[in-house]
Simulated assay, not measured.
Amino acid sequence: MTEPRWLTADEQHSWLHFIGVVELLPGALDTQLGSDAGVTHYEYLVMAVLSESPGRSLRMTDLATRTNATLPRLSRVVLGLEQRGYVERTSHPDDRRAKIAKLSDEGMSFLEETAPGHVAKVRELIVDALTPEEFSTLGRLSQKLLGRIDPEDRFGVHRIPAEPSTADAEPLARLGIGAPATRALAEAGQTMLGDVAGASREHLLSLHGVGPRAVGLLETALDARGLAPLQR
């Protein structure tokens, strides 16, 4: 019988700290989302995955895989989101036995309003606790571990581009400016942050649905990414 490869003292020390993060982080994110938005982290994840899918929709079986859940658990969660108007369920056009989950307009608006607080908590607990170099290293190490834990990329992480998008190609929908402002800007042909760089502040405020709060968030984002400010 092969002797077990017990962890060394240093390995045990590192493992216990790592498993502590794995066990405690979901609860911390649940607490923030529950307090600020009345949803669990898993409910938020379901809506976030749908928001980034073509047509904001996925088969229930695919959504279960992408969110690491059993189909019964996902069905219960989606039912709750459906009752709140955030998600819609329909039959697949080619297979009536299959169900499609789609993020509704109301769900997208909710997600856009909730995202800033969630991102702030992620920054507080993880991103800002590390230097940029440490955080990049964390990303590379996590990718290496996921290669073993999820070699088939069921969670979908490996489909995310390795290189971050340029600042001017950042979607406005991710800035938390709200659904009305996002729609108004899209109708004006402005969907990326670079589209509003150097634009007239007065013109943006003249668009129905774009208010001072949205413009303020755009100005902050432009300044943080070194893009041309709004013209006054």
Score class of each variant (00 low, 15 high):
4 P>I: 00
11 E>L: 04
12 Q>C: 00
13 H>L: 07
20 G>L: 00
21 V>S: 09
24 L>K: 11
27 G>K: 07
28 A>W: 04
31 T>Q: 13
33 L>Y: 10
34 G>P: 11
38 G>F: 01
41 H>T: 08
41 H>S: 12
49 V>S: 02
51 S>D: 15
56 R>K: 12
58 L>M: 13
59 R>M: 04
61 T>W: 07
64 A>R: 10
64 A>W: 05
64 A>D: 13
65 T>H: 05
65 T>V: 03
66 R>T: 06
73 R>A: 06
77 V>L: 07
78 V>W: 07
79 L>P: 01
81 L>M: 10
83 Q>S: 11
85 G>K: 12
87 V>I: 08
89 R>N: 12
89 R>M: 09
91 S>L: 07
98 A>N: 10
99 K>C: 01
100 I>G: 05
102 K>E: 03
103 L>H: 12
106 E>Y: 05
107 G>K: 03
111 L>W: 05
114 T>L: 04
118 H>R: 11
118 H>V: 01
119 V>L: 11
123 R>Q: 14
124 E>C: 00
128 D>T: 08
133 E>D: 15
134 E>V: 01
135 F>M: 12
135 F>Y: 15
136 S>P: 04
139 G>C: 07
148 R>L: 06
148 R>T: 10
149 I>V: 08
153 D>H: 05
154 R>H: 12
161 P>T: 07
164 P>C: 04
165 S>M: 10
166 T>R: 14
169 A>C: 02
174 R>Q: 10
179 A>V: 04
179 A>H: 14
180 P>Q: 06
182 T>C: 08
184 A>R: 04
185 L>D: 09
185 L>S: 07
188 A>V: 06
189 G>F: 04
190 Q>V: 00
191 T>W: 05
206 S>W: 11
211 G>Q: 12
212 P>I: 00
214 A>L: 06
217 L>P: 13
217 L>A: 10
220 T>L: 02
222 L>W: 11
224 A>Q: 14
231 Q>C: 04
232 R>V: 03
